[in-house]
């Protein structure tokens, strides 16, 4: 039996298009690689890796069982608290932003402005927000909460407005034709309809914020980040490793619970 061969015909124009695309991409990657000098590993690297591995085998259990304010359980709880509060703050603020960005609520022109504002917020790094808020409220968990609360608007506002834009407009029109005020329309037609999606997105953002909250401590905005970075910088590997392990475990458990709830919602 002969093989069936299907030949593709490619025009010269298509070849040129591909060469430009793939060649450009390859050049870009090459340009990137040439700019990253490899200076070899540190002279101390072997020792570092060895003590890192021994840190994995013998993590600092006394830190885990330290129930005071300096212990690991407190830092993890604080991280979770920052993530929860930050997510809650941003979910509440995101609703007006989302309404402002929804075409079917405020019209085409205003919604473009709203969408642009949300994009601006999304692009602004949360670590820098955290630094700004530290100067406002001082170092500590509240600065982290504010940073997460503002930064998350960028994502939640976008997802919320997409949910609002794809809702069934019949309910809204029914209320309006009965003479419902705009507040009544919002609370009795718009929000009840989109609330399962809103809650689901909020939970998803909570999972992301849990990860973000664990790095915010780096700049002094509370949570597990500060002790972790301090342990890594002072090469206290047994302590760093117990923090990483507990962090990975906590984040995984929260992910699991949250994604299970989300599956039940939508």
């Amino acid at each position: 039996m002969e093989n069936i061969v299907v030949r593709k015909t490619i025009t010269p124009g298509q070849i040129l298009y591909r060469v430009i695309n793939y060649g450009g991409l390859a050049l870009l990657i090459l340009w990137g690689m040439l700019g990253i000098p490899y200076k070899g590993i540190m002279a101390t690297a072997e020792g570092t890796i060895a003590s890192l591995l021994s840190g994995i085998v013998h993590p600092d259990m006394s830190y885990l069982s330290n129930m005071t304010i300096d212990g690991l359980p407190y830092a993890i709880l604080e991280t979770i608290a920052i993530a929860i509060s930050g997510t809650f703050v941003s979910a509440v603020i995101s609703i007006p932003f989302a309404l402002l960005a929804s075409q079917n609520i405020v019209g085409q022109r205003v919604s473009l402005v709203g969408k642009f504002i949300i994009t601006l917020i999304r692009t602004f790094p949360e670590l820098i927000l955290a630094l700004i808020f530290i100067s406002v409220v001082g170092p500590g968990a509240p600065a982290g909460i504010l940073a997460l609360g503002i930064h998350s608007i960028g994502m939640l506002g976008k997802l919320f407005s997409e949910a609002i834009e794809s809702m069934d407009m019949g309910v809204k029109e029914a209320l309006e034709s009965c003479g419902g005020s705009s507040m009544e329309v919002l609370f009795r037609a718009v929000l009840p309809q989109v609330s399962p999606e809103l809650i689901s997105y909020t939970l998803y953002r909570f999972e992301i914020n849990m990860r973000a909250a664990s790095t915010l401590g780096l700049v002094g905005a509370g949570g597990i980040g500060a002790p972790l970075i301090f342990a890594i910088r002072t090469r206290a590997w047994p302590r760093a490793m117990i923090i990483v392990m507990v962090l990975v475990l906590t984040v995984s458990i929260i992910d699991m619970i949250s994604s299970r709830i989300r599956k039940g919602l939508v």
Binding site: M42, A45, T48, L52, R211, A212, S214, T215, L218, G225, L228, I229, I232, R233, R235, V244, L247, V248, V251, S252, D255
Partner: peptide
């Protein structure tokens, strides 16, 4: 689950 920041500080070491 390991934040990029933590990975980076590990590799800096």
């Amino acid at each position: 689950t390991i934040p990029a920041m933590v990975l980076a500080s590990l590799f800096v070491a």
